[in-house]
Simulated scan of single mutants.
Amino acid sequence: MGDEAFIEVDGVEKFFDVRRRAGLLRRERHRVRAVDTLSFTVPRGEMVGYIGPNGAGKSTTIKMLTGILTPSAGRIRVAGIEPARERSRLAHRIGVVFGQRTTLWWDLPLIDSYRLMCRMYRIEERRYAENLDRCVELLELGGLLETPVRQLSLGQRMRGDIAAALLHDPEVLYLDEPTIGLDVVSKVKVRGFLRDLNRDRGTTVLLTTHDLTDIEQLCRRVMVIDHGRIVYDGELKGLHAVGDGAAAERTLVVDLERELPPLEVESARVVKVEGARQWLAFPAGQSAAPLVARIAERYPLADLSVREPDIESVIARMYARDPSAVTSRP
């Protein structure tokens, strides 16, 4: 398989049979379609955002790409390997981080989990030491190695999980909500590490997240999945413009030094006021810098932040434009 199809998903479907109550003593079996005729390819070394609302099929896709789940129909190849048939062989070439679950041993110090993984993956000692030193330095884990995993904060554990997934030099890294629940500082550290990893080692990364800032700072390409189908595949700036023809809106949250009437600034409109805090909507394709400068020049500014449009609202606009539309890469 060539680099243009390092990850290849071709016509994949996944069904689950569930039983639902149909009376006092009777249950009926229903078939739920989690993934519906899914097709895409990811070249070697690309970092791709894979986003969508809850229940869209993101985690199911990741589990099929790792071999945890078997497709009901269609074909998957990762580095020339069929995940469900050769899961053990593929495990040595992939790394996985699930934000909601840890791969670390809960009661052991962090370093002991790493030593166990060294044995599980049969990593050569010198290679293990080099990779561990690099991860510890870049993810700032030095003071945490002797700490039991259960005593780590969420941000610390997440950085520990990312390091664990990279000890064996995987060619592809699957990240399922890697920044969920993290504070701002931890998010910045994780994003910087992933950016360096992709640039320096050419690691292929598939990132699922609800945080569009993750995507904006890490990925040039984004795929949107909804109801198990790809509804958009292209650049993030193109996603913002999908909808009724106008760009999506970002929100500037402004904290003033005192309560004031709604602010009046060009290219923005006040959508909410609560005391000294005001929310201003402005086009997603427009830089926030000039808007911030105008506000700072005219009003007593204390603090501000920019909020990206949430994924659910982006998808809602896509369907408002054309419920059957699927935008794909050329």
Results as ranks from 00 to 15, higher is better:
80 G>K: 09
211 D>A: 03
5 A>K: 13
273 V>Y: 04
185 V>W: 02
203 T>N: 05
167 L>H: 07
50 Y>S: 08
119 R>K: 08
164 A>E: 10
5 A>Y: 02
158 M>I: 08
195 R>H: 08
42 V>P: 00
113 S>Y: 09
6 F>W: 05
182 L>Q: 04
38 L>N: 08
271 V>M: 05
217 Q>S: 05
154 L>S: 03
111 I>G: 00
114 Y>N: 06
9 V>D: 02
146 E>H: 13
97 V>L: 11
246 A>M: 12
293 A>N: 10
172 V>Y: 02
18 V>T: 15
310 D>Y: 08
290 P>A: 00
40 F>G: 03
138 L>K: 08
283 P>V: 04
148 P>L: 01
75 R>M: 01
290 P>C: 01
198 N>H: 08
283 P>N: 09
269 R>L: 02
135 C>G: 06
86 E>L: 01
254 V>P: 12
183 D>L: 06
298 R>M: 11
179 T>K: 03
245 G>Q: 10
209 T>A: 07
283 P>K: 09
195 R>N: 07
55 G>V: 05
20 R>N: 02
156 Q>E: 15
141 L>D: 01
313 S>W: 02
274 E>D: 14
176 D>I: 13
327 T>I: 13
231 V>W: 07
147 T>K: 15
140 E>M: 06
234 G>S: 04
118 C>A: 13
203 T>W: 02
45 G>V: 10
47 M>F: 14
244 D>W: 13
234 G>E: 10
218 L>W: 06
254 V>Q: 05
266 E>V: 05
157 R>L: 13
